[in-house]
Design a protein around this nucleic acid. Structure first.
Lengths: 338, 338
DNA sequence: TTTATTTACTTAACCGATTTCGTAACAATC
DNA sequence: GATTGTTACGAAATCGGTTAAGTAAATAAA
């Protein structure tokens, strides 16, 4: 089947492409009769306008990008669902980019966006991200950006996130309240502000309860499963083994549980586990997992909505918006001794 | 910052845009000296070519689409990772579309692709998909399609999937071997060939072991959690309650476990559970979950590789390719009485 | 010396849709 | 009857690259 474009229709109807284009866009310049004829033929021929021609001319791509560290994570998966719900309604398209926590990849992706490939970007920064030039640089090209979950304080744009300090505090307090004192924190990044804030909440909760903060209890994890397993095993085999672990990212949960199994440590008797997680299976784990859960779907929707506000009205001031969503602590068996 | 394009560079160097374009593409028509000057200025000015201009002219978008039912599913998440690994290497971009199991959405998406928005499509059909006209229609526009996991036998194109019949058979046989007889099957679609095949394997295994296939034990689930819970509850409360359940999709696992908890049915004593699933948490569920697990990452990589073979060499005969990956049954506590 | 070839560019058409500007035909107003 | 306005359309420029075709100058071959 050969491509049908404006010219195809114009020729068949002895009209100009200008007229056909206007007719399809329901311009007042075109008579009703002509509009009907054009519309009818277009549908008969299955005409679909070339998006790239139109993007080129209108300097608008009707496309946004989602840039996230990974997709195999319930938070991001749910957030994508929320984003998609909004985008779908707007008739936009979604390009997805995974950084796998690599700052270099993130930079390269943002560099590409200077081309006008997308009308806006939804970003959750990688764990390695240490500077925000790539972001402000893109902003100077008039491309709106909304950051969600993994935000950067330095960027001046809309931020959709949870109160990570409180979340960290609450998680720690929950453990303390349940009788744990030697609380370890598994981080994913030294630099990430979200990680820093959760950790501050953690430290403060310890301090407020007269528990000294131990360097050895703050452990950085990576994307590498082997490495994480080793780190966790070391932690749990050390002379001053912690009696509780806070995992700052969902993905570490399985590692922790399996290492505990392997070392024959009972959760929550020997060690408590609480995880920042949107896992659907949290309630049916062995034991069920206490989680700090973020409203991922809502956050995705909100981030996308904000982005569209800016796309649709360039003057909309994104930089003043900070949408804080409450995380909820869902207490389950992994932190409560019977 | 104003946009920098070919003309910007051409003007500054007193060259034509043609020369600049060729220099950037390292054409033999351009002298080395000019190439250097162009390359240097381009990098100084941070020049990024407009992808839509080039797509329009070259009739190539350097973009592929992933069309899947949902993203909050370990199989699809891992498959996306595999796809992304290949796509990344090719310098392509990925548009993602979620059908949420809606045939209408799938059709609309495929209709849009006639525009030339993408150079190829990776598809896993929705549960509601009953006809394949939208697919063959797109193929007639010379757009290569590779289907993975949820395939359609009717389509003549490359298929990347597991041996679903065997998987269904193996799962059922495993249950029978472990002493279960009243085995229910939770399906997600009457029409989906993957579902049909798994179910055929299920029926055959029953028949081979002289167990009659009971209609009431074959239950169709949906995307709706409430509905699924109700259906499962009904099933488990019926007079002839099954003693084992095969879930044809990961997402149903949590429902089953929770309903069992609620009804105080012990897994695997009262009821065994086996699930088609790529859940990382399968091993740490309560009890650990016996799964039929697909090599999702590899399947994604393979599907993408096949697609690129066709994109890069139009004559590559996709329609003859069927890549069957073995699913593995990982026996765990949910199907093995102590 | 003349012709052929190569080198290194430029001109201009092109991809397909959008949009500004122009205009013919007809109606309305003075 | 002359002027102004309206309606309905077309011509052509435009978005930013790519590429076929053309050309002038330098070089090589005859």
């Amino acid at each position: 089947m050969e491509n049908v474009n404006l010219k195809t229709i114009a020729d068949k109807l002895h009209l100009s492409t200008a007229t056909v284009s206007k007719a399809l866009r329901d311009s007042h310049e075109i008579s009703n009769e002509t509009k009907q004829r054009v519309l009818h033929l277009a549908s008969v021929l299955n005409y679909v306008p070339n998006p790239y021609a139109s993007s080129l001319r209108k300097r608008v791509s009707k496309t946004i990008a989602i840039v996230i560290p990974e997709v195999d994570d319930s938070f991001f998966a749910e957030a994508i669902n929320g984003i998609e719900a909004i985008v779908q309604g707007k008739g936009y398209h979604v390009l997805i980019y995974l950084t796998h926590e690599s700052f270099e990849k993130e930079k390269a992706i943002f560099m590409d966006f200077q081309s006008g490939r997308v009308d806006g970007v939804l970003l959750s920064v990688s764990a390695e991200t240490v500077s925000t030039h790539h972001i402000s640089n893109l902003q100077s090209h008039q491309i709106p950006i909304v950051v969600f979950d993994r935000i950067c304080d330095e960027i001046s744009t809309a931020k959709v996130c949870t109160d990570d300090y409180n979340a960290g505090y609450t998680a720690t307090k929950h453990l303390i309240d349940n009788g744990y004192r030697k609380i370890a924190y598994l981080s994913i990044s030294k630099t990430l502000s979200i990680s820093g804030k959760r950790m501050k909440g953690y430290s403060q909760a310890l301090t407020d309860n007269n528990i000294p903060v131990k360097e050895a209890y703050i452990v950085e994890c990576t994307l590498n499963d082997e490495y994480n397993n080793a780190v966790i095993r070391n932690l749990l085999q050390s002379k001053s083994r912690p009696d509780a672990i806070i995992a700052s990212v969902e993905r570490l949960t399985t590692n922790i549980y399996l290492v505990c199994q392997h070392l024959q440590l009972k959760i929550p008797k020997d060690i408590a586990v609480i995880s920042f997680s949107n896992l659907k299976t949290a309630a049916i784990l062995n034991p069920s997992l206490t989680t700090i859960t973020q409203p991922a779907y809502e956050m995705g929707k909100t981030a996308a909505s904000l982005l569209f506000k800016s796309i649709e009205k360039k003057s909309f001031p994104l930089d003043t918006v900070v949408q804080l969503f409450p995380s909820v602590l869902i207490p389950r068996d992994s932190t409560i001794k019977k």
